[in-house]
Protein backbone atom coordinates (compact mmCIF):
# COMPACT_ATOMS: atom_id res chain seq x y z
CA UNK A 1 0.00 0.00 0.00
CA UNK A 2 2.41 2.72 1.21
CA UNK A 3 6.07 1.85 1.10
CA UNK A 4 9.17 3.90 1.85
CA UNK A 5 12.65 2.76 0.96
CA UNK A 6 15.76 4.56 2.17
CA UNK A 7 14.06 7.94 2.42
CA UNK A 8 16.44 10.79 3.18
CA UNK A 9 15.61 14.45 3.60
CA UNK A 10 17.89 17.40 4.31
CA UNK A 11 17.05 20.96 5.27
CA UNK A 12 20.28 22.72 4.31
CA UNK A 13 23.04 21.02 6.25
CA UNK A 14 20.65 19.31 8.62
CA UNK A 15 19.66 15.78 7.72
CA UNK A 16 16.19 15.27 9.23
CA UNK A 17 15.45 11.86 7.70
CA UNK A 18 18.45 9.56 7.58
CA UNK A 19 17.20 6.63 5.56
CA UNK A 20 13.70 5.55 6.54
CA UNK A 21 12.14 2.25 5.51
CA UNK A 22 8.48 1.74 6.19
CA UNK A 23 5.67 -0.42 4.93
CA UNK A 24 1.98 0.17 5.59
CA UNK A 25 -0.32 -2.56 4.35
CA UNK A 26 -3.97 -1.98 3.51
CA UNK A 27 -6.15 -1.58 6.56
CA UNK A 28 -3.22 -1.15 8.92
CA UNK A 29 -2.90 1.63 11.43
CA UNK A 30 0.58 2.79 12.25
CA UNK A 31 1.49 5.34 14.89
CA UNK A 32 4.70 7.31 14.83
CA UNK A 33 5.87 8.81 18.10
CA UNK A 34 9.00 10.68 19.04
CA UNK A 35 10.33 13.97 20.40
CA UNK A 36 9.97 17.28 18.56
CA UNK A 37 12.50 17.51 15.78
CA UNK A 38 12.73 13.73 15.43
CA UNK A 39 11.57 13.97 11.81
CA UNK A 40 8.19 12.31 12.30
CA UNK A 41 6.15 15.15 10.81
CA UNK A 42 8.62 15.57 7.97
CA UNK A 43 8.28 11.88 7.24
CA UNK A 44 4.51 12.13 7.05
CA UNK A 45 4.63 15.26 4.90
CA UNK A 46 7.13 13.59 2.58
CA UNK A 47 4.68 10.84 1.80
CA UNK A 48 2.44 13.22 -0.16
CA UNK A 49 5.33 15.37 -1.29
CA UNK A 50 4.60 18.43 0.84
CA UNK A 51 8.26 17.94 1.61
CA UNK A 52 10.41 16.85 -1.30
CA UNK A 53 12.77 14.07 -0.32
CA UNK A 54 16.39 14.03 -1.43
CA UNK A 55 16.92 10.29 -1.70
CA UNK A 56 14.92 7.11 -1.61
CA UNK A 57 11.61 5.93 -2.99
CA UNK A 58 8.02 6.39 -1.83
CA UNK A 59 5.37 4.12 -3.31
CA UNK A 60 1.59 4.23 -3.13
CA UNK A 61 0.05 0.99 -4.37
CA UNK A 62 3.23 0.32 -6.30
CA UNK A 63 3.21 3.74 -8.00
CA UNK A 64 6.20 5.90 -7.24
CA UNK A 65 5.14 9.15 -5.55
CA UNK A 66 8.42 11.06 -5.71
CA UNK A 67 9.55 11.33 -9.28
CA UNK A 68 12.79 13.26 -9.58
CA UNK A 69 12.72 12.46 -13.29
CA UNK A 70 9.55 14.50 -13.86
CA UNK A 71 9.81 18.31 -14.07
CA UNK A 72 7.38 21.21 -14.12
CA UNK A 73 3.86 20.54 -15.30
CA UNK A 74 4.44 16.84 -15.84
CA UNK A 75 5.32 16.40 -12.19
CA UNK A 76 2.45 18.66 -11.16
CA UNK A 77 -0.07 16.49 -12.99
CA UNK A 78 1.48 13.35 -11.52
CA UNK A 79 1.50 14.56 -7.93
CA UNK A 80 -2.00 16.05 -8.09
CA UNK A 81 -3.29 12.68 -9.15
CA UNK A 82 -1.38 10.88 -6.39
CA UNK A 83 -2.54 13.32 -3.74
CA UNK A 84 -6.17 12.70 -4.60
CA UNK A 85 -5.66 9.23 -3.18
CA UNK A 86 -4.18 10.40 0.12
CA UNK A 87 -6.03 12.26 2.83
CA UNK A 88 -4.03 14.62 4.99
CA UNK A 89 -5.10 16.04 8.35
CA UNK A 90 -3.05 18.92 9.77
CA UNK A 91 -2.27 20.05 13.27
CA UNK A 92 -3.82 23.46 12.61
CA UNK A 93 -6.83 22.10 10.67
CA UNK A 94 -6.33 24.49 7.72
CA UNK A 95 -10.03 24.60 6.95
CA UNK A 96 -10.95 27.03 4.18
CA UNK A 97 -12.42 29.99 6.12
CA UNK A 98 -14.28 31.45 3.13
CA UNK A 99 -16.31 28.28 2.60
CA UNK A 100 -19.07 26.76 4.71
CA UNK A 101 -18.45 23.49 6.47
CA UNK A 102 -20.29 21.59 3.75
CA UNK A 103 -18.45 23.44 0.97
CA UNK A 104 -15.13 22.63 2.66
CA UNK A 105 -16.02 18.96 2.29
CA UNK A 106 -17.51 19.09 -1.20
CA UNK A 107 -15.06 21.43 -2.97
CA UNK A 108 -12.50 18.78 -3.90
CA UNK A 109 -14.92 16.08 -5.16
CA UNK A 110 -16.81 18.69 -7.19
CA UNK A 111 -13.80 20.38 -8.77
CA UNK A 112 -11.42 17.43 -9.01
CA UNK A 113 -13.75 14.52 -9.68
CA UNK A 114 -16.43 16.49 -11.50
CA UNK A 115 -19.07 15.30 -9.06
CA UNK A 116 -22.45 16.99 -9.53
CA UNK A 117 -23.59 19.49 -6.91
CA UNK A 118 -26.33 17.11 -5.81
CA UNK A 119 -24.14 14.03 -5.34
CA UNK A 120 -21.42 16.10 -3.71
CA UNK A 121 -23.94 17.53 -1.28
CA UNK A 122 -25.21 14.04 -0.44
CA UNK A 123 -21.67 12.77 0.09
CA UNK A 124 -20.78 15.85 2.13
CA UNK A 125 -23.78 15.47 4.40
CA UNK A 126 -23.00 11.77 4.91
CA UNK A 127 -19.45 12.59 5.90
CA UNK A 128 -20.45 15.45 8.18
CA UNK A 129 -22.94 13.12 9.80
CA UNK A 130 -20.19 10.56 10.25
CA UNK A 131 -18.07 13.06 12.17
CA UNK A 132 -21.16 14.22 14.09
CA UNK A 133 -21.48 17.67 12.50
CA UNK A 134 -24.42 17.40 10.10
CA UNK A 135 -26.10 20.24 12.00
CA UNK A 136 -23.13 22.52 11.22
CA UNK A 137 -23.28 22.11 7.44
CA UNK A 138 -24.06 25.77 6.78
CA UNK A 139 -21.77 27.15 9.50
CA UNK A 140 -18.44 28.74 8.67
CA UNK A 141 -15.17 27.55 10.24
CA UNK A 142 -14.83 30.73 12.31
CA UNK A 143 -17.86 29.67 14.38
CA UNK A 144 -16.56 26.16 15.14
CA UNK A 145 -14.52 24.93 18.09
CA UNK A 146 -11.10 23.42 17.46
CA UNK A 147 -12.43 19.90 17.86
CA UNK A 148 -15.25 20.58 15.43
CA UNK A 149 -12.83 22.13 12.94
CA UNK A 150 -10.61 19.08 13.04
CA UNK A 151 -13.59 16.76 12.54
CA UNK A 152 -14.61 18.78 9.47
CA UNK A 153 -11.02 18.56 8.24
CA UNK A 154 -11.20 14.78 8.55
CA UNK A 155 -14.49 14.75 6.62
CA UNK A 156 -12.90 16.97 3.96
CA UNK A 157 -10.02 14.53 3.52
CA UNK A 158 -12.39 11.53 3.42
CA UNK A 159 -14.47 13.15 0.67
CA UNK A 160 -11.85 12.19 -1.91
CA UNK A 161 -12.18 8.55 -0.79
CA UNK A 162 -8.46 8.25 -0.13
CA UNK A 163 -6.58 4.98 0.05
CA UNK A 164 -4.66 6.16 3.08
CA UNK A 165 -5.15 8.85 5.73
CA UNK A 166 -2.19 10.77 7.09
CA UNK A 167 -2.67 12.47 10.46
CA UNK A 168 -0.03 15.05 11.37
CA UNK A 169 -0.47 15.68 15.11
CA UNK A 170 -4.19 16.06 14.59
CA UNK A 171 -4.94 16.74 18.25
CA UNK A 172 -1.83 18.67 19.32
CA UNK A 173 -3.40 22.10 18.88
CA UNK A 174 -6.60 21.23 20.72
CA UNK A 175 -7.67 22.04 24.24
CA UNK A 176 -7.52 18.84 26.30
CA UNK A 177 -11.29 18.54 26.60
CA UNK A 178 -11.65 18.58 22.79
CA UNK A 179 -9.12 15.84 22.08
CA UNK A 180 -11.51 13.02 22.81
CA UNK A 181 -14.11 13.91 20.15
CA UNK A 182 -11.41 13.87 17.46
CA UNK A 183 -9.93 10.64 18.78
CA UNK A 184 -13.38 9.08 18.65
CA UNK A 185 -13.71 9.92 14.96
CA UNK A 186 -10.26 8.48 14.27
CA UNK A 187 -11.13 5.33 16.19
CA UNK A 188 -14.27 5.00 14.10
CA UNK A 189 -12.13 5.10 10.97
CA UNK A 190 -9.81 2.51 12.46
CA UNK A 191 -12.75 0.19 13.09
CA UNK A 192 -13.72 0.53 9.43
CA UNK A 193 -10.18 -0.56 8.51
CA UNK A 194 -9.08 2.69 6.96
CA UNK A 195 -5.35 2.60 6.33
CA UNK A 196 -3.88 5.22 8.62
CA UNK A 197 -0.54 6.72 9.45
CA UNK A 198 -0.71 8.73 12.65
CA UNK A 199 1.94 11.09 13.96
CA UNK A 200 0.94 11.85 17.51
CA UNK A 201 1.88 12.94 21.02
CA UNK A 202 -1.01 11.01 22.52
CA UNK A 203 0.67 7.87 23.82
CA UNK A 204 -2.48 6.30 25.24
CA UNK A 205 -4.36 6.87 22.00
CA UNK A 206 -1.51 5.54 19.87
CA UNK A 207 -1.38 2.41 21.99
CA UNK A 208 -5.10 1.95 21.87
CA UNK A 209 -5.81 2.54 18.19
CA UNK A 210 -2.80 1.37 16.22
CA UNK A 211 -1.56 -2.09 15.38
CA UNK A 212 2.03 -1.04 14.83
CA UNK A 213 4.00 1.68 16.56
CA UNK A 214 7.26 3.36 15.62
CA UNK A 215 9.54 5.46 17.76
CA UNK A 216 11.60 8.00 15.83
CA UNK A 217 14.49 10.10 17.08
CA UNK A 218 17.15 12.08 15.25
CA UNK A 219 15.82 11.18 11.82
CA UNK A 220 15.89 7.42 12.25
CA UNK A 221 13.38 4.79 13.33
CA UNK A 222 14.84 3.73 16.66
CA UNK A 223 12.35 1.01 17.38
CA UNK A 224 9.18 -0.40 15.85
CA UNK A 225 6.92 -3.01 17.33
CA UNK A 226 3.37 -3.83 18.31
CA UNK A 227 2.07 -1.01 20.50
CA UNK A 228 1.78 -3.22 23.57
CA UNK A 229 5.37 -4.25 23.23
CA UNK A 230 6.74 -0.84 22.35
CA UNK A 231 4.97 0.99 25.16
CA UNK A 232 5.33 -1.68 27.85
CA UNK A 233 8.70 -3.18 27.04
CA UNK A 234 10.71 -0.75 24.95
CA UNK A 235 14.02 -2.34 24.05
CA UNK A 236 16.10 0.68 23.13
CA UNK A 237 17.40 3.02 25.75
CA UNK A 238 16.29 6.12 23.80
CA UNK A 239 12.73 4.78 23.61
CA UNK A 240 12.72 4.00 27.31
CA UNK A 241 13.99 7.46 28.11
CA UNK A 242 11.39 9.16 25.89
CA UNK A 243 8.49 7.11 27.23
CA UNK A 244 9.56 7.64 30.82
CA UNK A 245 9.65 11.38 30.29
CA UNK A 246 6.43 11.48 28.34
CA UNK A 247 4.31 9.04 30.31
CA UNK A 248 5.72 10.46 33.52
CA UNK A 249 4.39 13.87 32.61
CA UNK A 250 1.06 12.73 31.20
CA UNK A 251 0.07 9.46 32.90
Amino acid sequence: MVELKGVKKRFGDLEVLKGIDLRVDRGRIISIIGPSGSGKSTLLRSINNLEVIDEGIILLDGVQVNRPDLKGLAFERHINHIRQNMGMVFQHFNLFPHLSTLENVTLAPRKLKGMSAGSARKLGMELLDRVGLADKATSYPSSLSGGQKQRVAIARALAMQPKVMLFDEATSALDPELVEEVNRVMKGLAEEHMTMLIVTHEMAFARDVSDWAMFMDGGVVVEANTPDHLFSHPEQERTQHFLRKHLGAHA
Binding site: N48, L50, E76, R77, N80, H81, I82, R83, Q84, M86, G87, M88, F90, H92, N94, L95, F96, L107, A108, K111, L112, A153, R156, A157, M160
Partner: peptide, 16 residues
Protein backbone atom coordinates in the same frame (compact mmCIF):
# COMPACT_ATOMS: atom_id res chain seq x y z
CA UNK B 1 -2.88 34.08 3.19
CA UNK B 2 -1.65 31.44 5.64
CA UNK B 3 0.63 28.88 4.00
CA UNK B 4 -1.43 26.10 5.60
CA UNK B 5 -4.23 26.99 3.18
CA UNK B 6 -1.99 26.22 0.24
CA UNK B 7 -0.85 22.95 1.82
CA UNK B 8 -4.39 21.84 2.60
CA UNK B 9 -5.50 22.57 -0.94
CA UNK B 10 -2.50 20.90 -2.55
CA UNK B 11 -2.87 17.85 -0.30
CA UNK B 12 -6.40 17.35 -1.65
CA UNK B 13 -4.94 17.23 -5.16
CA UNK B 14 -5.61 20.78 -6.38
CA UNK B 15 -2.99 22.24 -8.70
CA UNK B 16 -1.28 25.60 -8.29
Amino acid sequence: VDSGQNEASRSLGFGR
